[in-house]
């Protein structure tokens, strides 16, 4: 042991001999971010991984403890990144990287804007359904898509009616329409990226984290129903026929009265046949049906 390492050893021993220094050293060693600034002070200058550690320290202390343990064990930065991302994702907030973590809880907007021309290059499979509402893909370099006045009131009335039906098949089609016309009641389903960027992000406070997890879980559940409902409309002609007929009826009502009395709506969907057990067709069965159709 040379003089330098001996000196280091002496300092280390001295730090553990004095109770006050030992406590300070323990805090610095095992909670290096004990004095980190509050998230309200975040100005973008903090390294993403450090910000992620700050976030986990306040929102998910168990992940923070794991991360510090991993740092103490000499893990690489990429391993630490993976631990933090996977840990936060496992809590119910999907996270691929820390790029925006400092600005609040990153949320993924799942909604669409029917007037946005960009939508129609992504969701080409929606064309047959949108055609039932007289909505056509934009031609050339159109800056917006013309959505007739009656479409939103009729689409939302249909969505509201169907999502309250006991037949899960109808309910799933209702959620598909609720997504299409941004009226599900869930922000992530109803807002597209632009709309979501307009509202203040949720903070990493306990209450906001719990709320975000609830919203994300609900949106995931809804999107499963949206996909099942869309598949049903796309692949089963009798469903499309019934939807078209009901759209026509509601469109006439709206044109005649200028509004729709949603509470008094009674729509006929008998053309789809009955569901013997009254329950949903399980997604896996339905996907199998798609496979058969293909």
């Amino acid at each position: 042991m040379n003089a330098l390492t001996q000196l280091y050893e002496n300092v280390a021993v001295a730090l553990t001999d004095d109770p006050m220094l030992l406590l300070a050293t323990a805090v610095a060693t095992f909670d290096p971010l004990w004095n980190a600034s509050d998230e309200d002070d975040f100005d973008g200058d903090v390294e993403p991984v450090e910000r992620a550690l700050q976030v986990t320290r306040s929102a998910f202390p168990d992940i923070y403890a794991e991360a510090i343990g991993q740092m103490q064990a000499g893990s690489s930065e990429s391993e630490l990144d993976r631990l933090l991302c996977q840990g936060i994702s496992a809590k119910g907030i999907p996270l691929d990287d820390f790029d925006y973590i400092g600005w609040g809880i990153p949320l993924l907007a799942l909604g669409i804007d029917l007037e946005d021309p960009a939508l129609y290059s992504v969701y080409t499979d929606l064309f047959p359904i949108l055609a039932l509402f007289d909505i056509r893909p934009p031609a050339g370099n159109a800056s917006y898509v013309d959505v007739p006045n009656w479409v939103y009131p009729v689409g939302r009335a249909l969505a509201n009616y169907l999502t309250h039906q006991a037949d899960k098949r109808l309910e799933q089609v209702g959620w598909a329409l609720a997504w299409l016309f941004s009226c599900s009641g869930n922000t992530l389903i109803d807002f597209d990226d632009n709309a979501l960027a307009e509202i203040p992000p949720l903070t990493w406070s306990t209450d906001d984290v719990a709320f975000a997890i609830e919203v994300i879980e609900e949106a995931d559940d809804m999107m499963r129903d949206v996909q099942a409902g869309m598949e049903r409309l796309r692949t089963l002609p009798e469903w499309k026929t019934e939807l078209e007929r009901n759209i026509g009826y509601l469109k006439r009502e709206w044109t005649k009265k200028g509004k729709l009395d949603e509470h008094a709506l009674q729509l006929d969907w008998t053309g789809i046949g009955s569901c013997t057990d009254g329950n949903a067709i399980a997604d896996s069965q339905f996907l199998q049906l798609r496979g058969d159709a293909a």
Binding site: A26, V27, F30, D31, W34, R57, P61, D62, Y64, A65, E66, I68, G69, Q72, A73
Partner: peptide, 12 residues
């Protein structure tokens, strides 16, 4: 280490 970190975070 995790136990130590958890305890010290609570302490701080």
């Amino acid at each position: 280490v995790v136990e130590a970190v958890t305890e010290i975070v609570a302490y701080t």
